[in-house]
Design a protein around this nucleic acid. Structure first.
Lengths: 238, 238
DNA sequence: TCCAACTATTTATCTGACAAATCAGATGAT
DNA sequence: ATCATCTGATTTGTCAGATAAATAGTTGGA
């Protein structure tokens, strides 16, 4: 990666251990290395080691108790929707299956978000969706990053839904797009995210038509999902 | 509350500051009190104060920089789906609007989860849904906690979906039910979560009928949502 | 065999110090 | 007067070491 700005010692430790946990090096029920071993391994102080473990604890990955160390929690307690956890998982997840899982979840909440956005009909938030769409159009002719503008479109829809609990899911979308674009390109030989489908979503929201917005979003995502699913079946599970 | 087990100093600080942030005492863009002030206020050491702030940082609530202190991040970066954040928000959220938001999100992903659960058709996971349903039936005649069994039903559906990214949403369901049962009782004079609707979901999943499972879940949640929405309109925004 | 006390280990907390970043104000050159 | 630079103060970041609290394992006694 290019822009690798120096992060703090604590973050470094948390990121590496997080990746190792998500990668299966410390499976649920097992014990993480102790604080002293963390210090030794990273050449860090106990403060840094402890703060790193606190971060992992805050994301539901483990529980700590004196003498017992840090016990990795069961998968159901992991905060998979947390941006960091998502990133750590991405570092080790099986590409195609990972994409399918992400699309399945998006298929759930993004359709509802589009419907809510259409129902609320807030001018400025719809304008943000429109701007992102124009950025996508520009990107399709070489002006700007297609992944970023695509993500901006979907995030704008989430914001327009007017519901706080949709907002954290933008990290998932961002991850999904960053991950899926190169993979689907490899599978199909060309980008999948098409401008027309996004345009239909935008127009439905602009028209304030909830049902049509939900369907447009559903059609767009389910088509990608179906194509990835069949591709995975053909090429064998990744 | 009854079972108030002594929590650690760090957790105590994080919980109180978290509630204060979610409650609007430190709005986005403002700066949290500094480490030294935290120490003074809670009579704690800097280690405890710092670890508490790290927890809040890990949940997306703030960023810290030397000399600038802890700046509260914009709402879109808050991890509203995190169990702790959800709890802190619950402590100050306006009841009825809070319920509506939660139901809107549930309407999105739970329908899809039900459909996926029906499609996968894993015997043991469906058995867990059935057990939770039986627990609900028992609770309806006074045997056991109706909220817990209801939550168990929905969490079992999420687990049966076979997608890691649905799992963290069980915290939202748990919060929603704990919160909505007393409120809907107050609004309607009787519990809303009905056994029949859950039975339809269960049978559709048992039959492996994705479309029917999705519709059954949708009908169940949207009916509650519609009733709460009209009740809020009648009684005025909470 | 079972239970209580003891020991060793690990996390939890406290204290104090120095390093690094950064804001605000002073200084100096143009 | 304006701007760049330097200086000092403030706040978080990191380190080091010590004590407290919790707990698994061991030991000893009834």
């Amino acid at each position: 990666m290019a822009g690798n700005q120096t992060s703090s010692v604590t973050d470094e430790i948390a990121n590496i251990l997080g990746r190792e946990i998500l990668g299966g090096l410390f499976p649920p029920g097992s014990t993480l290395i102790g604080e002293e071993e963390i210090c030794a391994r990273f050449g860090a102080s106990r403060s840094a080691a402890r703060e790193a473990v606190k971060i992992l604890w805050a994301k539901g990955l483990l529980v700590t108790r004196p003498r017992r160390g840090s016990r990795i929690r069961p998968l159901k307690d992991w905060n998979f929707l947390d941006p960091s956890v998502l990133g750590w998982l991405r570092a080790s997840a099986t590409p195609r299956h990972f994409i399918i899982e992400l699309l399945e979840v998006r298929l759930g909440f993004e359709c509802e978000a589009a419907a809510l956005a259409a129902g609320r009909n807030k001018a400025d938030e719809i304008a943000a969706i429109r701007e992102a769409f124009e950025a996508m159009r520009a990107a399709s002719s070489g002006q700007g990053d297609p992944v970023l503008s695509d993500a901006a479109f979907h995030e704008a829809v989430l914001a327009a839904a007017g519901n706080r609990f949709f907002l954290p899911l933008s990290a998932l979308i961002h991850t999904a797009l960053q991950y899926s674009v190169p993979t689907t390109n490899a599978l199909f030989g060309h980008p999948v995210g098409d401008l027309d489908a996004h345009g239909k979503v935008l127009r439905a929201i602009e028209a304030g038509d909830s049902a049509r917005a939900r369907k447009a979003m559903h059609d767009m995502l389910s088509e990608v999902l179906a194509r990835v699913r069949t591709a995975v079946e053909l090429t064998g599970a990744g």
